[in-house]
Design a protein around this nucleic acid. Structure first.
Length: 488
DNA sequence: TTTTGAGTTGTTCGA
DNA sequence: GTCGAACAACTCAAA
């Protein structure tokens, strides 16, 4: 048995798993493939990235830390490196005398290119180089309409997906041969990756809001199923209802797999006789929206930059730097928007509905390019995801797939009154308005001098006057969107 | 090929 | 206060 993993020199031959967006043990086909062959080393490489993702990097640091411990306990050392994977991996494979390398596929243009180059290198080699399917329910090219293409509309795609059998998650089995440590000139410590900027105190405010890692993700899913899912459809729109799953960052880093989520939803539904419950269906559809975003990321070029609907080429955006800054800082003078932007800054996440409201304000009322908003979200969200972020910003701006019609412009006052009726959410994140009567909490500019004074609010002093007039800017947006209509 | 029905999340206006 | 229609026309999916 022992000799099985020894080569002719009597040197141990090991297997490598290259971890990326799959920081888990359970349902990890690449990790499992390596472990099934025997002794395994895991590596995480910090690759150069054009996009700033500081909040997400904070999460990544802690997630890798948790994963390193979990893997160590099953005899798989996790090592780190920084640089171009095309250079590092081949050297590492040679240095470690590895016989095989595995990874789970990713779908960004850059990621696909890098992985393809490495795969080509080992095409006719003795080193087995294999990519696996681990981060989606189905590959982006697997779900096809009757014409053989990919779906451009969500609902038929969702229906089609539901007719297919989702593969079962792969349970983790540890390798027969444990490995203690790795000697390498190519690796560094987790701290040396510098994922956390220690000069900044920003990320400190994230800490109380999150439990990071695979174990925490699993607990969160179970709690969500037991306590929230039956109320999900109705409650998820209400900002203070605490009805959403907040699994998104765990999903982004693959601390939990979508297949595990689907499997556990179905098991839960079955044992509680809830198969057709609206909450179950609605939550499933959200997981499938993630798939839909990944299909778009795979099938469209430069989805982070280029509008999918080509009629938006040359759209008359206006990048007003001052207004953009006010939006980022949560100082627009529109309470629900400021609440959302401050929740984002302080916790690294924003409630789903508020994301739509702030994005609608930025792209429609302010006519600031959606790419700018998307960049800010990438930098400040702990769940920042190339696929979901790009597809959803395009959707709000009106240039994405299945997008909202151009006249669908959220009114932040109406939205606030509907989904944050008593102003709890606004008051939590915009404490300046703590004592304002709930009649005016979503539009303080309508309050009388007396009411404002009573609440200690001085517009333009301790809380901004609105940076735009909602009614007028709505009209202007409708006019600007006529541009799209007139494109051939 | 042609036709038909449908499409995440909204707002406003007027009855 | 509630409800339906208008907002406009296009693209997608399937028959």
């Amino acid at each position: 048995m022992q000799n099985m993993n020894c080569n002719f020199k009597g040197v141990y031959v090991t297997n490598i798993v290259w971890l990326r967006d799959d920081l888990r043990l359970q349902d990890n086909p690449a990790l499992q493939s390596a472990c099934d062959r025997g002794e395994t080393i895991a590596i995480y490489i910090k690759e150069p990235n054009d996009t700033k993702t500081e909040a997400r990097d904070w999460w990544l640091h802690h997630s890798l830390n948790k994963l390193q411990t979990a893997l160590k306990n099953v005899g798989v050392p996790l090592v780190f490196a920084e640089g171009n994977a095309c250079n590092i991996l081949p050297q590492f494979i040679e240095e470690q005398n590895a016989s095989a390398i595995f990874w789970n596929r990713r779908y960004t243009e850059k990621g696909i290119k890098t992985d393809g180059e490495i795969k080509t290198k080992y095409k006719d080699s003795k080193v087995l180089c294999q990519s696996c399917m681990g981060n989606l329910l189905f590959e982006p090219w697997e779900i096809k309409n009757k014409q053989g293409g990919f779906f451009k509309v969500f609902t038929p795609m969702f229906k089609e997906l539901l007719t297919l059998k989702t593969p079962k998650p792969v349970p983790f089995t540890q390798p027969k041969e444990m490995r203690e440590r790795v000697q390498s000139t190519l690796t560094c410590t987790l701290e040396e990756l510098n994922l956390i900027n220690s000069n900044k105190i920003w990320h400190k405010s994230f800490e109380p809001h999150w439990e990071i890692g695979e174990a925490a993700a699993e607990i969160k899913l179970q709690k969500f199923l037991e306590e929230k899912i039956t109320h999900y459809k109705k409650g998820r729109d209400f900002m203070s209802d605490n009805s959403t799953s907040t699994l998104s960052p765990h999903l982004h880093f693959g601390e939990i797999s979508p297949r595990t989520i689907f499997d556990e939803i179905e098991a839960f539904a079955l044992s509680n006789n809830l198969e057709n419950h609206e909450g179950i269906q609605c939550f499933k559809s959200e997981i499938v929206w993630r798939e839909f975003s990944y299909q778009q990321l795979f099938h469209y070029e430069q989805i982070e930059q280029k509008p999918i609907n080509e009629k938006f080429k040359g759209f008359p955006w206006e990048l007003d730097a001052e207004k953009f800054t006010a939006w980022k800082k949560g100082l627009t003078g529109i309470p629900i928007v400021d609440a959302g932007m401050r929740e984002l800054w302080q916790t690294g996440i924003m409630h789903n509905r508020v994301r739509m409201i702030v994005a609608s304000l930025l792209t429609k009322n302010l006519l600031i390019p959606w790419q700018e908003g998307a960049k800010w979200f990438m930098d400040t969200l702990v769940d920042a995801d190339e696929a979901a972020n790009s597809a959803n910003w395009q959707w709000v701006a009106g240039c994405g797939l299945d997008a909202s019609p151009y006249f669908r412009i959220f009114n932040p006052v109406t939205q606030g009154e509907k989904f944050d009726t008593d102003g709890t959410y606004v008051k939590k994140w915009v404490p300046e308005l703590q004592d304002l009567d709930k009649k005016y909490i979503h539009q303080p500019w309508e309050a009388s001098e007396f009411d404002l004074k009573l609440a200690g609010v001085e517009l333009g002093k301790n809380y901004p006057k609105p940076i735009i007039n909602l009614k007028a800017s709505r009209e202007r947006a409708l006019e600007a969107y006529a541009f799209v209509k007139n494109q051939a």
